[in-house]
Nucleic acid binder design. Structure first.
Lengths: 165, 165
DNA sequence: ATTGCCATGTTATACTATAACAAACCTAAT
DNA sequence: ATTAGGTTTGTTATAGTATAACATGGCAAT
């Protein structure tokens, strides 16, 4: 299994995961001549450390602890930049942000979100997009952006429920 | 064309549309022994009058005008009830609410949202759901709820853009 | 008529996000 | 090296979305 795309496996190599995401981010920003400034890098790091959807305000205390200004605009600006670079995605139904496991090529994103453990994994949305674009084209609708967010229980949490019951 | 499901057609019979939605709602609530109280009915009416996604706070002034308490909890409670009954859906990416054109049988909902005219139409999400459930079952993920919201341009607004250009 | 539940009123506050302007900082051309 | 111009960050304030908590009122079944 690719460490950058661990599905709902809890016990993957977190450290590697994070470092890999950060070095990819640095690489991409260098290529694109974009500045991955300290605050931006820290925010990305925090998001990957948690490896689950994080609210903007959940990230603020760590920014303050690191000596940055921790007023809301700071975090939202960093998140905006990271989104523009495809390094993080926003999950609208959670008002939360999560690291993208494959930012090197921009793509339509979709998520499976576990309501048991709060983890989320990015989906391959190609089949979903196909279905959507067929429905859309019947109505002459031109798609610009898709929000696909599926809430449910991951395999682990289903087992846990069975045990608890 | 079914008036309750007018796609992006602007010039359908609004009044009929609204009355039909309201009478269906009354019927359903009677069947289910749920109380469609004055404030709930008014909120549903306001949503159908506009026939496009409405923010909770956009609805408050009309509530106040009708003599109801217009503090936020009033509207959110009404919206919560209407959602439970399947009479309105929430669109997460817009923080807005819209009337459901076929509340008689609960269903997974998805939307096409036009960024030109702000209208939204409910999709048949069966094909999308099929694609999603295949992806989900590969990961052993059990789906509880789907958020599918597609932003783009409806046919009218594409034409309008072409004219403006 | 009484009781108990459901709905609404009311106040306060939490949570999410952005506007607007000032200060600091790159960086590239002179 | 200097400086002009753009980008990033700091800072204050506020807009926008949603819920907690408790009081009050109304309705329905006994």
């Amino acid at each position: 299994m690719n460490c950058e795309d661990p599905g709902f496996e809890a016990n993957h190599d977190h450290d590697h995961c994070m470092e890999s995401a950060l070095s990819t981010a640095k690489e991409l920003c260098r290529e694109r001549k974009q500045r991955l400034t300290p605050v931006r890098e820290l925010v990305l790091k925090l998001i990957w450390e948690n490896h689950q959807p994080m609210g903007a305000y959940e990230l603020l205390p760590a920014l303050a602890a690191a000596g940055f200004n921790s007023a809301p605009p700071t975090i939202y600006r960093a998140l905006e930049f990271l989104q523009e670079q495809g390094l993080v995605h926003r999950i609208a139904s959670l008002n939360a942000f999560i690291g993208c496991p494959h930012p090197e090529n921009p793509h339509r994103s979709g998520f499976l979100i576990c309501s048991g453990c709060q983890r989320a994994v990015e989906l391959d949305t190609a089949p979903v997009h196909k279905a959507l674009s067929e429905s859309a084209s019947e109505l002459g609708f031109q798609i610009a952006h898709e929000t696909v967010e599926v809430v449910g229980l991951c395999a682990d949490c289903q087992n846990q429920e069975a045990v608890d019951a």
